[in-house]
Design a protein around this nucleic acid. Structure first.
Length: 860
RNA sequence: GGUCGCAUAGCUCAGUUGGUUAGAGCGCCUGCCUCACAUGCAGGAGGUCCGUGGUUCGAGUCCACGUGCGACCACCA
């Protein structure tokens, strides 16, 4: 028994969060025990959040889902492995560093000496810093951000084992990512090739198919007339007239009668007077534009396909920075019928950005009479790098690829071995995998990333030999080829003829984060540990990165070990704002989590998150958090009431208590089943409904009086049932509401159970009910409640308080109901303060219905 | 163009394999300081379960078609 006077009047969520956070840490509640076997372990492949400034409420939402599941499995006795990683590696960090410190990095900039440290100079132009220093700044800023994230995670109550922390740029991740490359290289799964690749002109890097998104933009069809050799002309329609100098062919559908006679002839481009072949292609849609179009190097992916298939020449007019290149018509590769005219026409385009070049060439075409009609505005979708602001271009460059196109069948098979929650998310994976159209481009021309661990020999003219790269030795990792020297060479030979050069590119961030299960397990660095932690049990993540994170992780596990990376994927939905739009930083509709935690407590916020089913998008709604906060208060008060009962708990004997506990037992089974099925939302909803409807509002009220009765056996049964009910319900709530449940648990159950934390207490089950006899009829509980409700209704209609005493009461019910009511009647009458009562049997009433015949209230 | 999800009370959502009169919370209305809790308690009003057709003794639930919203994939000259 506890003395309620020693408890605070109200639950102080902030104080509890601080206190229990520290206590869990002290007790090591969340520690993974490496000594225990794999089958007792539950491994969470936690998403490493991108460390790019601030967390938003969407993070809180999905991370809570994983935490609720982790806490459930921990209470089930599993040895939970729940790490936390930070995804600092990559472009978001670079971009943030650029704006935060007002700096830029350029790979051509000499990599020695420090410049004046940023922050000092905030001029019109960013300070150029060497690569090494730029990386320093990235590390510095991400370290600060990670601390901020960490404190929020702790406050939210994520039961992360903070001894298992990593960041995707740290030495271990660099080491493992490079090991991954070595393994793929040895198995022939990676290759480098010089080819047209999707390219972001702002970040000046290659990007992978998975990072590309379509956006609808305004454009215009320009009808441009080409001469045909031997007489005549044709009119192509293009949205990219600025690529006319890069035109290398013209094509139409083979069955198109309008153009069939042209195949095999050559067209001559206007302005530049370049003869190009006219060829048929089934890829052309006769309905679109004029049904005949120009092929450029390169306007889009189809251009690349035509260029390859027709073995067309390469005329790359766009530089990697998105501006029009220096070109000289008449020179080799730039043949023209009239080079002088061509160069004159090109002059205004030289060095221009795409949009400007487009305006200028349209003017020129119009002046030359080659533009037919005016441009026709259209809306069309264009490929963008997901983090980029200008459309992607195809630029020819040397890149490293992981071979995936030839492994679709295996990827699909592995995806089907994984269980997806909800199951329909599997289709996202299948869709994506089936539609893959390029190998995975993993090299990025950036700085803050894991270096690609290769060097190239230089020939006598200083040209690199890309065909036979020198791959770092496994025992030398991690390496930075721009700093470290390959075996057999000296530092002086760097970038010298007959010497070597280091690969300057870094890996795509996904190359590293596709290894999160292996990063946690240490993989090749500790095979013993790897076997205990890999494959993981659950991969929580959101659905928009199924094609990236989930896909690449499955790909890596397939290529490295021919296995799956985890057994279950647990997919959270999105947080939508009240207008049903996805909340995201760029839309400016994000609510920061800190003030929500202040206002509703961590448990209140978690209640909201845990109320949403997996895979379902959820409206952001503070009202639900308020409901959660109210539930927390109710738990606090109910706990106080039950544990402050003065009478000693005894054996459960009373019919009402037995019937109540039978219901509770059924609840435990339903809730456990829901959790086993990853359905924490259903589990919480069931528990809450029972707690409020069957416990506080009914059972607790009905046994209040008996719990204080002189008869020790009757009181003991009531107190025993109340305490068992509270103990079980607290534990059912514990995964979702870790703070309030721990608080109430600590008042008495912690000492009794010999388990200081509810989060290590055994999950409720048969053992809890072992000493409880089954009720004579479980429906006696419903009969008692039916009678109780009928009396309350009578009092309410009489505008009397529920606590008002009753002089005389008559109720009626069908015979079976009367029989069930009999053993619990005394509890009801005592709780309702009925002095005299009569129960009549009436055949016309349906079984279960209790009819109020007469109610005489006592004087107020 | 292909696919997936969602559509139930004013709002947010439950409704398990088809089965009496469709539920909860919030909000609203009427009462009540009852010795755990007024951050509470009792009672109440409120629904054409998106539409049409079908299967069935019986459909919110299953099937078909359609509508609206959201997303994924493809196309994108």
């Amino acid at each position: 028994m506890i003395d309620p006077a020693t408890l605070p009047k109200h639950f102080d969520a902030a104080a509890a969060e601080a206190r229990w956070g520290a206590e869990w840490e002290r007790l090591g509640i969340h520690r993974w025990d490496p000594a225990r076997p794999r089958e007792e372990t539950f491994v969470v492949d936690t998403p490493p959040p991108t460390v790019s400034g601030s967390l938003h409420v969407g993070h809180v939402f999905s991370y809570t889902h994983a935490d609720v599941l982790a806490r459930y499995h921990r209470m089930r006795g599993r040895n939970v492995f729940y790490p936390m990683g930070w995804d600092d590696n990559g472009l978001p960090t670079e971009r943030r560093v650029q704006s935060h410190y007002h700096v830029r990095c350029d790979r051509r900039f000499p990599d020695h000496g420090d410049v004046v440290l940023p922050g000092a100079a905030k001029g019109a132009f960013p300070t150029m810093v060497p690569r090494r220093q730029f990386i320093e700044l990235c590390l510095r800023l991400t370290r600060e951000d990670e601390e901020a994230f960490k404190s929020l995670w702790r406050r939210l109550g994520l039961s992360v084992d903070w001894h298992e922390e990593y960041s995707t740029i740290d030495p271990r991740c660099r080491h493992l990512a490079q090991l991954s490359f070595l393994d793929l290289f040895a198995k022939g799964h990676v290759y480098s090739v010089e080819a047209p690749t999707m390219w972001d002109v702002d970040f000046q890097t290659a990007v992978a198919q998975a990072e590309v998104e379509d956006r609808t933009v305004h454009g215009a069809f320009h009808d441009v007339a080409f001469a045909v050799e031997g007489g005549g002309e044709l009119v192509i329609a293009t949205t990219r007239p600025e690529l006319l100098p890069a035109c290398v062919g013209v094509t139409a559908h083979p069955d198109d009668a309008r153009y069939r006679h042209l195949f095999g002839k050559r067209a001559v481009t206007p302005l530049f007077h370049v003869p190009v072949p006219i060829f048929p292609s089934a890829l052309v849609d006769p309905e679109k534009g004029t049904g005949i179009l120009m092929v450029c190097t390169f306007g889009d992916a189809t251009d690349v396909a035509w260029w390859r298939a027709e073995r067309l020449p390469l005329r790359q007019v766009l530089r990697p920075d998105g501006r029009m290149a220096e070109v000289g018509f008449g020179e080799p590769g730039w043949e023209s019928r009239r080079p002088a005219d061509a160069n004159r026409a090109y002059e205004p385009l030289r060095g221009q950005k795409v949009e400007q070049a487009r305006r200028r060439i349209v003017d020129e075409l119009r002046a030359a009479g080659a533009l037919r009609g005016e441009p026709r505005p259209i809306e069309h979708s264009v490929k963008f790098y997901e983090k980029g602001e200008r459309p992607l271009e195809f630029v020819t460059s040397r890149q490293w690829f992981v071979r995936l196109l030839d492994k679709k069948a295996q990827l699909l098979a592995k995806g089907d071995l994984v269980r997806w929650h909800p199951d329909f998310m599997r289709l996202r994976f299948r869709d994506w995998t089936q539609n893959l159209n390029a190998d995975w481009c993993v090299s990025r021309q950036r700085y803050f990333g894991v270096p690609i661990p290769v060097w190239y020999r230089l020939d006598d003219e200083g040209r690199p030999d890309h065909e036979r790269p020198i791959v770092a030795a496994a025992d030398a990792l991690p390496v930075d080829p721009t700093v470290d020297v390959p075996p057999g060479f000296t530092p002086e030979q760097r970038d010298r003829a007959h010497g070597f050069t280091g690969e300057a590119d870094v890996f795509d961030t996904w190359f590293t984060s596709s290894l999160t299960p292996q990063i946690s397990s240490r993989w090749l660095l500790d095979l013993d540990r790897h076997r205990k932690l890999f494959p993981a049990d659950i991969r929580p993540q959101s659905h928009e990165i199924i094609r990236t994170w989930a896909f690449y992780t499955i790909a890596k596990a397939l290529l490295h070990e021919d296995t799956i990376p985890w057994r279950h994927v647990v997919v959270s939905g999105w947080i939508l704002d009240p207008d049903r739009k996805k909340m995201s930083k760029s839309k400016g509709n994000v609510v920061t989590p800190a003030h929500l935690l202040d206002a509703h407590g961590a448990d209140g916020v978690r209640y909201w998150a845990a109320s949403a089913r997996l895979g379902t998008d959820t409206a952001f709604d503070e009202k639900v958090m308020k409901v959660g906060k109210r539930l927390v208060t109710k738990l606090f008060n109910a706990g106080k009431f039950v544990l402050a009962q003065e009478r000693a708990p005894g054996p459960i004997t009373a019919e009402l208590d037995r019937a109540f506990l039978a219901r509770l037992r059924a609840l435990v089974e339903r809730v456990s089943a829901a959790f086993e099925d990853f359905d924490y939302a259903h589990a919480l909803q069931q528990t809450e409904g029972f707690f409020w409807g069957d416990f506080t509002d009914t059972f607790l009220e009905l046994v209040k009086v008996r719990a204080r009765e002189p008869d020790a056996a009757a009181a003991g049964s009531a107190v025993g049932a109340l305490r068992l009910g509270l103990s079980v319900l607290l534990r059912l709530f514990a995964p979702a509401l870790p703070y309030i449940t721990e608080e109430v648990w600590s008042w008495a159950f912690a000492a009794e159970a010999g388990q200081p934390s509810i989060h290590r207490a055994p999950w409720p089950g048969a053992a809890d009910f072992a000493g409880v006899p089954a009720p004579a009829d479980p429906r006696s509980f419903d009969a008692a409640v039916g009678c109780w409700v009928a009396i309350n209704k009578g009092k309410s209609e009489a505008q009397a308080s529920v606590g008002r005493a009753v002089r005389r009461l008559v109720v009626a019910a069908a015979a079976p109901t009367v029989a069930r009511l009999d053993p619990v009647r005394a509890d009801v009458m005592a709780a309702a303060r009925v002095a005299e009562h009569e129960v009549r049997t009436r055949a016309d009433l349906a079984d279960g219905v209790v009819d109020l015949v007469a109610l005489e209230l006592a004087e107020a």
